[in-house]
Amino acid sequence: MKIAVMQFPGTNCEYECLVAVKTVGMDGELFRWNRPAVELSAFDGYVIPGGWAYADRVRAGAIASKEPVMDTLREEAAKGKPIIGICNGFQVLVESGLLPGTGKIDMALAQNVMVSNKKIVRRGYYCDWINIKHDATPERCSGSFIIDKGAMLQIPIAHGEGNLVTMNKDLIRKLNENGQVVFRYCDSQGQELPEFPVNVNGSTENIAAICNPEGNVLGMMPHPERAFFSWQLPPHDPRKHSGQAGPGRLVFESMKRYIEVRA
């Protein structure tokens, strides 16, 4: 089971993702953007990690989305192979039209706008541990294949542009009806409060992750690879020294299980 961990100029989470992929028992390999794109077809799944591909020039994900490797990923996605885009990887998937999966750019991940008591209290980059709730049914999406609906994960975010906006008035309704909203930001009790710090970036309907209609392509702003081991959890977390798996591991375990089931 071979997984390509994509590496664009400016990607900076590829090694953590590679460790995560290998630790759950898959064969991981870094795949540089300038390798022959056709070689991607030999892989069973793909991770587009976070970072600043091409230094976010023009806007996050825009330049990377034009690379030949993205054309190949479109073809492989059409075959049902899983693709997980994390943070900047999510932005690349949006700019390439792979998400929300209508084949065109149908949404944007705009600058974070933190609203509290109906006032803007902060804008831009933000880094913190947040809670997300799984809003899809199990087996709906490759990256949350083994996660129960309603399960909560504590995972860090670190981004300046994760605010899902769209001019397509029907898009959010369709995402909800199709079960394409995979994770939403929530508080520690699971309540999806619309304001900061629960809705950490002002995203429409607290959306933190979506998948394509087929479910094999997932984009998520939080970083599961940074909560893969329990020792990565924050100092006050009682699980930190438990030796258990971190909550983010479920995303990579899901990818593996999705590939096994499809085989």
């Binding site: 023009v58 806007r59 750019i105 149908d106 949404m107 944007a108 705009a110 906006v165 001019m167």
Partner: peptide, 9 residues
Amino acid sequence: GLLINPHKD
């Protein structure tokens, strides 16, 4: 084709 994302620009 490149300079804008119509959902914000």
